[in-house]
């Protein structure tokens, strides 16, 4: 199982973002560096959810915002390592929609449950595979400041 290493302040920031946008989904990007066992995250970037027509159960980051985030990452000597979003009143497991719309192979997808406005469990999934045809999500452990806080199956 791969490991996503998250500083505590980023873990808290993701969850706070989800609470702030509740009952709508929040979303953002994670910047980091590749490590032997997975990504080591150094920064998060809040994004707007362009799915204003259905923001309670969908999210989308504008591609031009991704272009800007990618430039920011490169300026910091990092790269886009993954993304996060919230599941308002829904378990923090990837959904068929999440899977169908996942195209960042090798990147982490962090999902935070927000139940009645309060952040619940936070899970991470690695989009594994080498093509669109064989892509699949794998459970990923989150380690925060060297403290393992669990994996999706835990």
């Amino acid at each position: 199982m791969s490991i996503l290493r998250l500083p505590r302040f980023i873990y808290d920031e993701i969850r706070a973002h989800g609470e702030e946008t509740y009952p709508q989904e929040c979303c953002g990007a994670l910047l980091g560096h590749p490590a032997a066992e997975g990504w080591r995250i150094v920064a998060s970037v809040r994004s707007g959810n362009t799915r204003t027509d259905s923001a309670h159960n969908r999210y989308q980051i504008a591609p031009v915002e991704l272009v800007h985030i990618q430039r920011t990452a490169r300026r910091q000597g990092a790269e886009i390592a993954g993304f996060y979003h919230s599941h308002p009143d829904h378990p923090p497991q990837w959904s068929p929609t999440d899977f169908a719309e996942a195209h960042w192979l090798g990147c982490s997808y962090v999902i935070t449950e927000v139940a009645q406005g309060k952040a619940g469990r936070t899970n991470s999934f690695l989009l594994a595979g080498t093509t669109e045809e064989d892509k699949h999500f794998e459970d990923e452990a989150i380690v925060m400041d060297d403290e393992r806080i669990g994996a999706p199956s835990a």
Binding site: E25, C27, R51, P63, S95
Partner: peptide, 12 residues
């Protein structure tokens, strides 16, 4: 740059 989107897809 590939797109990024998703969500519960659940009507709730």
């Amino acid at each position: 740059i590939p797109s990024i989107a998703g969500g519960t897809g659940h009507p709730g």
